[in-house]
């Protein structure tokens, strides 16, 4: 059974063809990073997998057709970490994390001691225990991102979908978030699918990268196979250097502005 199996997926917004004939499978326990230029449908693909947009084509999540899931059933096994969470009506950190239990609770049920235990573990896992009674709008970006991830972990999902979780974070916090995902995958076998613009983090953590361009997946494979100079130059429309880092044993990719001559 695959965590995700997509066949012939198409998405239109009005006349725009956002996703074109996407077919891809993600196995249970994989760490997959979706990369590609802005506006190529990465977020749309993630939303399609979360059942948030109406698409044509087939999507199977954990062996069952997505259309057959009720919203609550889906939330019991798939967690989504969105780019941003509104904070006009601020909850405390503890309340926000506890919301992750709601798919598992009946409408009138009060959280049990077990639900609180799971929430506490999620907060320890993401190192936000000391923030429990703080309000969401008082936190820094990195702390808030960890709260939302704690909420997702509290759902006890088998699949977690993240939309640029490290955008606007400093390097230390980026690594911290990525380490959390890696640990979640290693310790609990959770499948991780992430959209990211950070090619180097993608290369260091992803088992597999999906490179998207203009609504299609144009390359799919391990980092070394996807991060190649010719392919990235063409896709991003920008000169890229791809280097093998000997100390880290990973491949690194970064853009080169025109004022630096390449010799």
């Amino acid at each position: 059974m695959s965590a995700i199996r997509v066949t012939g997926l198409n998405l239109h917004y009005g006349k725009e063809h956002i996703l074109r004939e996407i077919s891809v499978a993600v196995e249970v326990g994989e760490f997959v990073v979706i990369i590609g230029p802005n506006g190529t449908g990465k977020t749309s693909l993630l939303k399609a997998l979360a059942g948030l947009v109406r698409v044509s084509g087939e999507i199977e999540i954990l062996g069952c057709p997505l259309a057959g899931y009720k919203r609550r059933e889906l939330a019991e096994c798939v967690a989504v970490v969105p780019q941003q969470v509104p904070i006009e009506f601020p909850f405390t950190v503890a309340d926000t994390v506890l919301m992750g239990r709601s798919p598992h609770l009946g409408l009138l049920a009060v959280e049990s001691a077990n639900d609180y235990r799971i929430a506490r573990q999620a907060m320890e896992f993401t190192e936000i225990g000391h923030l429990a009674e703080r309000r969401l709008d008082e936190l820094s970006g990195g702390e808030r991102q960890r709260v939302i991830i704690a909420r997702a972990i509290c759902q006890q999902p088998r699949l977690i979908l993240l939309d640029e979780p490290t955008a606007s974070l400093d390097p230390a916090h980026q690594v911290r978030i990525m380490d959390l995902m890696e640990r979640l995958r290693r310790e609990q076998g959770v499948t991780v699918v992430m959209v990211s613009h950070d090619l180097n983090l993608a290369a260091m953590y992803g088992d597999r990268l999906l490179l998207m361009d203009k609504g299609c997946i144009i390359q799919d494979g391990p980092p070394r196979q996807v991060l190649t100079a010719g392919l990235l130059d063409k896709t991003y429309g920008c000169r890229m250097i791809i280097e093998e880092s000997e100390t880290l044993e990973v491949v690194r990719a970064f853009p080169v502005p025109d004022r630096f001559p390449l010799s």
Partner: peptide, 21 residues
């Protein structure tokens, strides 16, 4: 419906992925 209302404060998409119809 008090709990779904809490989730709706986080936005419609956020509520949906947390299991709210």
């Amino acid at each position: 419906l008090a709990r779904p209302m809490n989730l709706l404060l986080m936005g419609r998409e956020n509520a949906a992925v947390m299991g709210v119809n």
